[in-house]
Structure formats: C-alpha cells, structure tokens
Design a protein around this nucleic acid. Sequence first.
DNA 1: AGCTTGACCGACC
DNA 2: TGGTCGGCCAAGC
Length: 117
Amino acid sequence: MARMDECELPELPEYAERVLDVTERIPPGRVLTYGDVAEWLDAGGPRQVGRVMALYGAAVPWWRVVRADGVLLAGHELRALEQYHAEGTPLRDAGRATAGHVQRIDMRRARWDGGAR
DNA sequence: AGCTTGACCGACC
DNA sequence: TGGTCGGCCAAGC
C-alpha cells in the first residue's frame, strides 16, 4: 500500500469531495442551504461548505446550494437566474414596487428535504 | 500564537 | 421587511 496518494487525480480534500457529491444529488428545481449540506455530512459548518463551493463549485450545479435567506449568489445572479428559470425553481419577488425588482429564491417551496432530516 | 476574513446562520429589535 | 450582532469553523497572514 505505498504511494496511494499518487493514484488520485483530483487532490481534493475528502471533505470537499463529499460536499460536491451532495451538491450533485440535489434534484433540478430544488436547493439546499450551505447549512443543510453541512448538516447532511454531519461535519464542518456552513462556512466550510461555502469555502468548498467557492473553490470547486464550478464543477457542479453550484446554483443549487444557496444561502438560507434565499438571496442569489453575489456576482452570479444572472447565471443563477438563468438556471432557476430553466429548472422551474420557485422564486419570489422581493421588491414589487421598488426599483430593481430583485428576486430571491422561495425557500419555503424550493428547499429540498429529500435527505435533510 | 493571535487576528482577520469568508459563496454562513439564527436570534433580536 | 430589513438591518445588526454574536456565534460558528477553518484558512491565511
């Protein structure tokens, strides 16, 4: 059992790998919060999950992991909205009469409870 | 070794 | 409905 470390192509920390794995299981049109993912894994916390997503999120459906308040990911609002629209993810208007009709995710309906619990 | 920062969360006001 | 505050855990400096 020598050089097992040389076999692995991606040198992702195991924790990161698990986070990405969970992310890929989230069905289209549904989302999980950073905290949900951490709770699933029963390891780390929302911030750790956030770090992993910031580093390796590009390789997975990153738009399905969101903040608990449903606010769209800063800097990727348009990309995210495009996906949500395509997947039918429940959104909620956050400023009907105010300028910049910003949307947020309707967490009540979009949150995936398929395994959280 | 100590302080700051971050794709966060929940409670409070 | 919205802003602030403290707690959270790991990484960087």
